[in-house]
Design a protein around this nucleic acid. Sequence first.
DNA 1: TTGTACGCGTTATCAG
DNA 2: CTGATAACGCGTACAA
Lengths: 338, 338
Amino acid sequence: MAASRRPTLADVAREVGVSAKTVSRVLNEDGPASAQTREQVLAAVARLGFQPNLMARNIRVGGPDTTVGLVIPDLGNPFFGAVASSIEDTVRDRGLTLLMGSSADDPERERALTATFLARRVSVLMVVPSVGADHSHLKPHRSGGLPVVFLDRPGTGLATDSVVSTNRSGAHDGVAHLIAHGHRRIGFIGDLPTKLYTRRERLAGYREALREAGLPDDRSLVTNAHDQHGASAATAQLLALPDPPTALFAGNNIVALGIVTELARSHRKDVAVVAFDDVALADALEPALTVVAQDPEEIGRTAATAALSRLDGDRSRARTLTVPTRLIVRGSGERPAP
Amino acid sequence: MAASRRPTLADVAREVGVSAKTVSRVLNEDGPASAQTREQVLAAVARLGFQPNLMARNIRVGGPDTTVGLVIPDLGNPFFGAVASSIEDTVRDRGLTLLMGSSADDPERERALTATFLARRVSVLMVVPSVGADHSHLKPHRSGGLPVVFLDRPGTGLATDSVVSTNRSGAHDGVAHLIAHGHRRIGFIGDLPTKLYTRRERLAGYREALREAGLPDDRSLVTNAHDQHGASAATAQLLALPDPPTALFAGNNIVALGIVTELARSHRKDVAVVAFDDVALADALEPALTVVAQDPEEIGRTAATAALSRLDGDRSRARTLTVPTRLIVRGSGERPAP
DNA sequence: TTGTACGCGTTATCAG
DNA sequence: CTGATAACGCGTACAA
């Protein structure tokens, strides 16, 4: 039961009585081979359970490995799960395998992950940049031909493709929707840290909408949370203000969970809510949750497609690809202001 | 702007004027090296942006690659996302990187993925087995020392570790809970295909609970769905029966979404519901959703820990590790029968 | 149709 | 302390 070495080309060759190269030829359908040897080789391959060593092959061929390195903040977040799923669907047709890791939005972990991926010579690098991360160290790789694509947020210090949602206009539309229903005091609960790109953009959209409507930008109505519980607490806090908001805008899906949960707990049915990013069960709530839906599938597909076209030699300048959001009216955002 | 070759050990060596091996020594803190050369080498490494080629290293060392191959049915399903996240957290400490792919529950895709992983000489293979897949082909690898762990469901044709939830007793408890609240006609909406392990186990738990209570096992109350929409349709269908159920048991998280959504759409507040597997926003529903919660983090951690201990030479016989479920009472399961 | 020589980038071995 | 040489498993180039 000793852990015997995995069989190699040479083992198969010896077994059949041919050269290693002949075996290689048969397996890769490369050069010609007599039906006779082909059969013998295939038989031996099956008998020994030989499987070519992909790493050895790649090192020889010299090209990049058939993998896609993907860094996301949190594998457990449904949004990123959906994005990853879509990426995989897209690159699978090219025979690429996903190499994944989560950064927890920590620049150091992100850097460690990308380093691992680069050491593995991934064909493509796709990253959701962590706050505070600098990407200028990817420059030589990028100009060396490695496609690098930023997801959800733009990177820093590197001109390359990125794919983002229409954060600003989406948030604007969501908030304008609340204003159209008579709300004048609208709370904003956003991501943490506040420097986060999506947070900034969505907040900007929120402010734009307020400004357009001639509403004051009351700082006390803008707050943050970095998880569901925090969002619940922030909700309670906003509603306890002397002059509380009559509507809330959620800066992301996790915040939305917290807001909705807190409103349900405190039986506050009078507060209007619009959330950025859709969540499961949104339409089973009472009232159903109105959202500015992102399109994670499209984000993933767009990013993967861009990366593959770079892989195919597209040398045009770096683009920022924008995936539209869509306001889905379900009820919570249409509650009239008192 | 030519895609210049990535620098190699030899390049660094030439730059400094030493041999490749010396550079290797410095980087791996292997043999001794004078402070002088060490510094020069490190400087050259930084200057050239050299990164050792992990594939080349592995091919030389011969051992398995520092990767974990993970096959799950669907990256977008929050349950599997949470499991994957937990696995990653656990193996990261060992310097292992996640190699992931989704099988869509298709045996052929599963097989293709595992083949890729094996060709990459993963250190560990973790698989959520697809329905109908046979795993006897993994036997030689497993006896060759490769840790193989099945997740969520046991595999077929291979004696190895697997990690599953207490599906049967969990479902039993959930259904018994409904019975305790007076329900005598309880609908079951399960996974598809019906051969799926989790589906069978949970259905068995459902039947056990009925039997214990002396209730008939009415086949017309047992149905299936393979996505959220299907579950909604199945819900409507069950409730349209001449003698409809007064309570529903959801066989998984996706089915739960469908049931809850359909009940909300049709304003049926009188139907009790218990779901297997927790879902986001469960406690924001009205009534909040009572669930038999799985523990995806623990499942992932348990599986990863088992795999790592095998990697460390644990040769004890294959175990089936069971992760307990927990009934979380929130409201929907406590509605009394009419 | 098949084999030989060599190289990919790295590390092990053993000599200096 | 350092270097030359071989080797890992495979593919390319060319010859037989």
